[in-house]
Structure formats: structure tokens, C-alpha cells
Design a protein around this nucleic acid. Structure first.
Lengths: 229, 229
DNA sequence: GTCTATATTGTGATAGAC
DNA sequence: GTCTATCACAATATAGAC
């Protein structure tokens, strides 16, 4: 993509709202919303600026006026989406609560958060697969300034709890990393693999929604059962 | 992409091999191998015919001579990769063996099969996310002529075993669909999310390999433990 | 079969009017 | 801020020599 260039620009000051009705978003916002939909659907490489412009109801030039280049727009959408995903995962795992509660909280919070925008996990995983070079920046952004401090904190917290329980004889011995990935995978995978799973199991959108309701209840019990001594 | 066109072409007859050394693959094969690598790395939309030509050590025109269009080449690579993935999953789940054995076999076969080409799950999931319209064709191809007959067979088999065990009091009640997705997700997710997981957990390639060795052993025990009454 | 050269279209980006 | 018109180049695909 061509060279970057600086565009001076001032933010509009938001005037006071008179009505309670949802205001029609201005062009800048409509573009960002459209970009989100298109990038999530097509990926960074497959997305077309023209398609975003069409969905936003503006012309291509305006996309560049506000966001300067496809690469910048894509970066912004990706970091936002991936950030939200992490924000839903990491805090639940570092919470200072008994392991049973932590697992249930994590499953509930993740499913509740993601079911509103169920294609984000698939989009983020696809982007990370095709652009693994983005991972360090993402981790730095999502877990605070220190790259993997939070990861280590979460893992160490998990490790400590598991070790204590195992020693007390109230838990089967499991490797924290293995357990962590099984736990996260169990909530992420149904979203990430949604197209193939729903087709394979013959689910429509409503059925997938019921599946998620059921999973919210059943998965914590399944995981906890696996941990019984 | 432009209109298709017919190219008459004859297959080379493979002459008898004199030496045991691996023969240098001919251009047609080198192109397909290169295409596999590039499509898996960049995805269908992100891949460039020029990059494939470079990796194959030929020029772009030859790609079209053998495979006619990018779309056809992409389709071929995708169906092959996805087919292999299914071939590793479905038969292990329809095998006529006790549930314990079935679970262990499935985990072992999947990890053993996929660790040789560990980026295929990420590639296939990404493609399915961006091109869900490919799903029906894939299922038809992967599970035989009748679209979801095999899926239903696998699920029904699982359902029957689970029901029998639950009735006999030797298993906690679980929903077959939930169990199936947890099981598959637990083996697929580590591969599909590899870039972010390895960075998050600070693993290099060797550590990821050790992680897989350990998972082979620990995951079946974890799953079976979850099923205890 | 394989190459070089080229046609053709797609796509991101910019200039400049309003 | 938003538009139309256009540029520049990237990317797929084809023609035709060897």
C-alpha cells in the first residue's frame, strides 16, 4: 500500500441530544460500523473499500478522508475486536474467587459477551492465523504495557489454586496450561467453528442459540466434574 | 474472475524409477505443493499467484496452464485440506468400540495426524469463516454422497452409547452435541489458536511439541474423568 | 511444457470542485 | 465534509514464441 500522509482534522463537538430516539450516526461512525461488518465477514485481505463505502452509504473517497488507508482502518477494527475478546477472557481468569466460581463466571461471561457478536472469534482467529506478526502488539495492548505479565499472572494464579487443591486431595492433578487451553477452547471453539458445526449438526440460528443456553449451564459442570479427585 | 475455458491436456506417463532417492517433483506437482503452502499461509483472498509461482520455481503462466484459474486452484487446495481433516475426525467417532477407547483413539489419531501440518486447522477454519457457502459442498464431499448422513450416524452412535451408559449408571448425563463439540474443540483449538496461545504462554515450537505430547496423554483422562458418574 | 510479453480488469488512493 | 473523476499500480489471465 502507498505511502502514508498526514491529514489535519478536527473532531466534531457533540451537541446536546434533544430526543431520546437513537440519533442517525454521522458518516465517520457509519463508516467504522460498516468497516467492522465487512472486515469481520471478509477478513482484511478479502475486504474491499468499495463494499465498506456502499454499506456506509458514502463514497470511497470519504473512507480515506477519515481513516486514510485500508491498512489503518483494518488495524483499528482488528485491535478493537481482539481487545474486546481479551477483555472478556483475562479478567475472569484473574479474579480472586474459588476455582468453581471462577470457572462458572468465565464460561458465563464469555458466552454472554460474545453471543451478541458471534462472528468475532472466527474473525480474530482467522486474522491471527494469517497475520501472526500482529500477536505481540495485540498482547501488549490487551494485557497492559508489560507484554505477558498478565498472562503469567493468570497462569500463576491458576497454577497456585490447582496445586493447592491437588495437595489437599480435592482435585485430580492437571497441568495448568492444558487445563487453561481446554477451558478457553471449550467456549471459543463453538463460535469459531460455527459455520461447519451448525451445518454438521443441522442447527439453524435459533438452535445455535439454544445450544449456547444449554452450554452455559452444562459446560461448567462438565469441567468441574473432570477435576474431581 | 474471467470466464473459464477448456484446455486439452494429457497426463505424463510415469516411467519406472531407477533410484530409491526421492525424485524431484515435476512442475505440476511443485505448483500444487507451493499453492498449498501459500494458501494455508495467506488464505484464498490474501494469496498471490506470483508468490505461488515463485515458491514453485516457475512463472505465472504455468499456473494457469495447469490449473486454469486462481479460484480453481484455491478450491482444490481447500477441499483437499478440509477433506483430510474430516477423514481424521469422523471415522474415529463412528468406530465400533467402547466409549473410553473411542475417545482415546480420537484424540491420538487427530493429534498425530495434524501435528505434521499444524496450520491446516487454522487455515480451514479461516476459510470456512470467510466462505461459509462452501460448507455444504464440503460436507457432501467429506461424508459421502448423502450430505449429513454420516454426521447423523456419528451423533446417533454417540447418543446411543451415552444413553446406555447413563441408564446403567456408569456415566454422568451429558448432551451428545455438547460433548461432541467439547471433545472436538479440545483437540482442534490448540492448533487453530496456535499463534496467540504460544505467544500468550511463552511457548516456542519445541515447547508446543511437548505440549502436544502431554495433551495426547492428559486429555483423554480429563474427558473420561468428566464423564464419571 | 515452459517461457516472455502483454492485455485487462480490479482496487487503493488522490485531486479538486462544490 | 462530501462528492465525481481519475490516477497508478497490483493482480489475474491470455497470446504466442520457442
Amino acid at each position: 500500500m502507498p505511502t502514508a500522509r498526514t491529514i489535519a482534522r478536527k473532531k466534531k463537538v457533540a451537541g446536546p441530544r434533544k430526543s431520546a430516539a437513537p440519533a442517525p450516526p454521522d458518516a465517520e461512525q457509519r463508516i467504522l460500523d460498516a468497516a467492522r461488518r465487512v472486515f469481520i465477514r471478509r477478513g482484511t485481505a478479502g475486504a474491499r473499500m468499495q463494499e465498506i463505502a456502499d454499506e456506509a452509504g458514502v463514497n470511497q473517497a470519504l473512507l480515506h478522508y477519515y481513516y486514510r488507508s485500508k491498512a489503518r482502518l483494518a488495524e483499528r477494527v482488528f485491535l478493537e475486536a481482539a481487545g474486546r475478546l481479551f477483555a472478556a477472557v483475562v479478567p475472569a481468569l484473574t479474579a480472586d474467587a474459588p476455582l468453581e466460581e471462577l470457572i462458572e463466571q468465565f464460561v458465563h461471561r464469555y458466552i454472554d459477551e460474545v453471543r451478541n457478536s458471534p462472528f468475532i472469534p472466527g474473525y480474530v482467529l482467522a486474522e491471527l492465523h494469517h497475520h501472526p506478526e500482529r500477536v505481540p502488539a495485540l498482547l501488549a495492548r490487551a494485557t497492559g504495557s508489560e507484554p505477558s505479565r498478565m498472562a503469567r499472572a493468570a497462569l500463576d494464579g491458576l497454577r497456585g489454586r490447582i496445586a493447592a487443591r491437588v495437595k489437599a486431595g480435592t482435585m485430580r492433578p492437571v497441568t495448568p496450561e492444558q487445563f487453561f487451553i481446554t477451558l478457553v477452547g471449550s467456549v471459543v471453539f463453538p463460535f469459531a467453528a460455527r459455520p461447519i458445526l451448525t451445518a454438521f449438526l443441522g442447527m439453524d440460528d435459533a438452535a445455535f442459540d439454544r445450544f449456547l443456553d444449554q452450554r452455559r449451564l452444562e459446560l461448567p459442570a462438565f469441567i468441574l466434574s473432570a477435576l474431581r479427585p
